[in-house]
């Protein structure tokens, strides 16, 4: 593109979205080849997924607990505390689970992926792989992308389960709601298709988006300490914006 044109920030923004799109196509193109490096994918699932478990579980627990507390207070105004289980479950499955998990993963794993790839670029490791006839797209980018795609829905499920547990803990164990009411209302309202699967689709999309942004930012990070630092920040900022925007769009389409 013309150098003058590139200076305009709007054009630059659009161009970087385009770059990201092209990168996405390149990553998809490298996916078949990256199946050979499934061990690397496995390692990344470990890193993105398993290593995020603690934070995701803790946050899920507290989100469920605080939701139960808040909702209990609000619902008791209308005498509708029996709906607590339902409301906690629906909010978790449809919105909070996918979104908060995605934000947590962007902060916890996305930044790490960006910094790691950025440093690999800065220390010529990506070039070195290329020179050893190992496509860094297939060996570095695709496995991380795939790992995000795999790990995110699983993490969101764990988050939701912990949230339900937290909600149950507060609602039933602490505030003394009836256990059967809690579960009964939940199970009669929550639908496998509309709620759990829709939430799952969301988190798969978020997983793809977060890991794509993280990998892209790392891959295109200027090979300097400042460049890597900025790219890491951008990963969090862009991921958060895109997650919430996609969430809105997907919710609008799903309901």
């Amino acid at each position: 593109m013309n150098a003058n044109l590139r200076r305009n920030w709007l054009v630059q923004g659009i161009a970087s979205v385009g770059d990201c799109g092209l990168f996405f196509v390149a990553v998809l193109g490298a996916l078949p080849k990256s199946l050979r490096y499934w061990r690397e994918t496995c390692r990344q699932v470990w890193f993105v997924g398993a290593m995020s478990l603690v934070i995701v579980m803790t946050c899920g627990l507290f989100v469920g607990m605080v939701m139960a507390l808040q909702l209990y207070y609000t619902l008791s105004i209308f005498g509708g505390t029996a709906a607590l289980g339902t409301v906690v479950a629906l909010s978790l499955f449809r919105e909070l689970g996918p979104v908060i998990t995605a934000l947590l993963v962007a902060g916890r794993a996305g930044t790490a992926v960006t910094a790691e790839i950025g440093l690999m670029r800065a220390t010529d490791q990506l070039d070195a792989m290329g020179m050893m006839a190992v496509d860094p797209l297939a060996y570095v980018a695709s496995p991380r992308f795939l790992a995000g795609l795999i790990a995110m829905p699983l993490l969101a499920s764990v988050f939701n389960a912990m949230g339900i547990f937290g909600g149950h803990l507060v609602g039933v164990t602490w505030l003394g709601l009836d256990n059967g009411t809690f579960w009964g209302n939940m199970t009669s309202t929550v639908s496998l298709h509309k709620d759990i699967l829709d939430g799952l689709y969301k988190s798969i999309v978020f997983g793809g988006v977060v890991s794509l942004i993280a990998v892209f930012q790392g891959y295109t990070a200027p090979p300097t300490s400042e460049g890597v630092a900025y790219s890491t920040t951008r990963t969090v900022v862009f991921s958060s914006i895109v997650i919430l925007a996609f969430d809105f769009v997907m919710t609008a389409f799903m309901t």
Binding site: L119, M120, T123, D124, Q125, D127, A128, M129, G130, M131, M132, A133
Partner: peptide, 16 residues
């Protein structure tokens, strides 16, 4: 082609 070429990087570029 690169499979048949060895390359020593100026800054080593070992995989950390």
């Amino acid at each position: 082609l690169r499979e048949r070429i060895g390359y020593l990087f100026q800054n080593s570029a070992l995989l950390t």
